[in-house]
Nucleic acid binder design. Sequence first.
RNA 1: GGGAGUGUAGCGAAGUCUGGCUAAACGCGACGGACUGUAACUCCGUUCCUUCGGGUUCGUAGGUUCGAAUCCUACCGCUCCCA
Length: 415
Amino acid sequence: MNFIEDLKWRGALNQVTDETGLLEAMSNEKIGAYVGTDPTADSLHLGHLIPFMVLKRFQNAGGKAVIIVGGATGAIGDPRPTTERKLLTQEQLIENEKGITAQVTRLFGDNNTRIVNNNDWLGKLTLTDFLRDYGKLFSINVMLKKDVVASRLETGISFTEFTYQVLQGIDFHELWRREDVKLQIGGSDQWGNITSGIDLIHSLEGNEAKAFGLTIPLMTDSTGKKFGKSEGNAIWLDAKKTSPYTFYQFWLNQNDADVEKYLKYFTFLSAEEIEALAKEVETNPGERLAQRRLAQEVTKFVHGEDAVAEAELLSKALFSGDVAKLSASQIADAFDGVPSFDCTSEVKNIVDLLVEGGVETSKRQAREDVTNGAITINGEKVTSTDFVVDPSKNYDGQYILVRRGKKKYFLGKIQ
RNA sequence: GGGAGUGUAGCGAAGUCUGGCUAAACGCGACGGACUGUAACUCCGUUCCUUCGGGUUCGUAGGUUCGAAUCCUACCGCUCCCA
């Protein structure tokens, strides 16, 4: 299977500008492909992983992976279909760039990877140069027809965001020039921005210039919901924001109906391996071999082998249910990735403890959960709101292990 | 600048004409429980706070009234139309 065939099989291809041209370029020379990310937060989340998976496959197929951590475009903001974005401060941008750069480096390694900041060229561009060298090449008429812009004409769009597609076009051309980047990869919403760049390259370098675009279908789960949220929260790639354990669990809990799709998309397993796992889902769904393998593979890719081992260890400890017998050091090891809070060694009413520890948002809610039998302290179910927790009783007086519901754990660290 | 709308709990959306029965229908989401495969589906419960007496809410600030999400005034935000 060639690069494109593989993507098709994996359900990772929405549109390509020129399939045969691209394959030809890939076999004739070593070309680069790029994915742009704006540093809107200090970490990437699973949504970002979607184009990166395709870029990684491109790299594995022998190409050079180029990633823009968009300092300059991040300062402007890619228009959303609905509302204007809030501008980020310079300090935020720099902070966010740092975090994202580190993560991207992990995912792509040092070989055959370039991470660039478009501030290097866009930041130097003066307004008059911008208007003379690039502005002339963009037709307002064409820009207005791009989907995102068109949808915003009703509700309004600032000149700043309107200009975004020009900046992204300049990026593509700049990378085309200095990094041999011939392909831009993005989500299906990026099609307009990508073709802007291709048009610009053709204007500046002639129509023979090789430049391609590829978009990825919108990722949804079997119920039609946007992929990548767990309990309404984004799943981050930063281990501090989403622990490797939670990350692993996210994948482990995927539906039977989705797991094959995700194996294809988010792992580098071969077609044979994935088909075998898909068969397991059909014949032996209760074992959840496919989900387990999915969780292992993606966690390994994002957090590394050690994190997989740790997540599995922790999962085992949590779901065996019997945590009362564990030692303090075992608790420290196993529950390292679980949300924690600080507390004192004083005895405390259960309801107060839950609220102060951030396990519950209000006393009302805390009482409700206690009464429903949803709260377990150190492996023992607590059903009375008058229950008093004595921190010195378990784990050498160092920890209080709180469980809410069937699988949410919180670790109280006694100061 | 002129005109017409609109602002209700995390979100969507009733209620406003005909003031009290409204801490505010309903849907979604979220949370908990049962079932189960750490699943899906389904079912049940909860969803402003509380010392469980009560307290504070319907863009903001005033006013009318025994009583206002509901009536009046001003202000702010958003949308649309005209200029």
